[in-house]
Amino acid sequence: MHEQLRQDAKGAILFDATVSPQVDGPWFDADHWRGQGALSTQSGGRGGVAIIHTPAGECVLRHYRRGGVVARLMGDRYLWTGADRTRSFREFRLLQTMAKLQLPVPQAVAAQYRHAGLHYRADLIMRRIADTYTLADGLAQGRLDTELAREVGALVARFHRAGVWHADLNAHNVLIAPSGLYLVDFDRGRMRTPELGWRMANLQRLRRSLFKLGAAEQGEAVFDQMIWTPLMDSYERTLSA
């Protein structure tokens, strides 16, 4: 990994030169890729995600957007507190740190921010992981069983053992691929000293997500026996390995 920085009067681009020797502003513009016939899908919502076909391969382009009540006031703007504190630069660097730790995450390609006055807007490009579906999709399709639950527990434990805190650990951010399981969307994530408190809070967030998606429709006792207890057993074994 070789971090390169390009700056101009309105912002900066941070990119991994081992993935692409040159990244410029149009890379972060979905319309640019659409005009070249290189944009396959685009979704709205909080993330503003597009699948783009770049010289570095198939990638995911994500535009940072606020959620909740603040979104109505700020939209995609964030308070400027310095380049190194932008959402995009912090997530880019966290992805690189996790890759060095051999954790299963998307490969960071490039990040940018555009600064105007008190605010900035930001984008992130990552290599797309092929042939995936989310844990949420798997649950909806009836694929969440005891064995998959064990795999999810082991996955989360690997990140917690390394001191990685995921700010929004939920079933939509666990990807299942032929090559294994991955965690995605590390916006606001960070490295922390491993402690029981934040680790358990992280896991409870995942549990609430599964409940919200209907994993316990047969009752909490069945969910605990078939899903959560195997998940936690695998988590504890992996954490102490």
Rank of each mutant, 00 (worst) to 15 (best):
H2D: 05
H2M: 03
Q7I: 00
F15Y: 05
Q22L: 13
V23M: 03
V23S: 03
G25W: 10
R34F: 07
G35M: 05
Q36N: 10
G37P: 04
G45T: 04
G48D: 11
I52R: 10
A56E: 00
G57R: 13
C59Y: 09
V60F: 00
L61P: 08
A71M: 11
L73H: 00
L73C: 08
M74N: 12
R77L: 13
R77A: 13
W80A: 13
R90V: 06
R90M: 08
E91L: 03
R93I: 01
R93Q: 05
L94K: 02
L95K: 05
Q96Y: 01
Q96L: 13
M98N: 04
A99P: 04
L103R: 02
P104Q: 02
Q107F: 05
A108V: 10
Q112A: 10
Y113A: 00
I125C: 03
R128K: 10
A130R: 09
D131R: 15
D131G: 10
T132A: 08
A136Q: 15
L144M: 07
R158H: 07
G163I: 12
G163K: 12
W165C: 13
H166Q: 15
D168A: 13
H172F: 06
V174R: 13
V174S: 11
A177D: 00
L181N: 05
L181A: 04
L181F: 04
F186L: 12
F186N: 06
R188K: 11
R188F: 04
R188N: 02
G189M: 14
T193V: 12
G197V: 12
R199M: 15
M200D: 05
A201Q: 09
N202L: 14
L203Y: 02
L206K: 10
R208K: 09
F211P: 07
K212D: 11
L213W: 13
E217V: 07
Q218I: 05
Q218R: 14
E220H: 07
E220A: 11
A221Y: 04
A221Q: 14
V222S: 08
D224N: 15
D233W: 02
D233S: 12
S234Y: 11
E236C: 00
S240A: 14
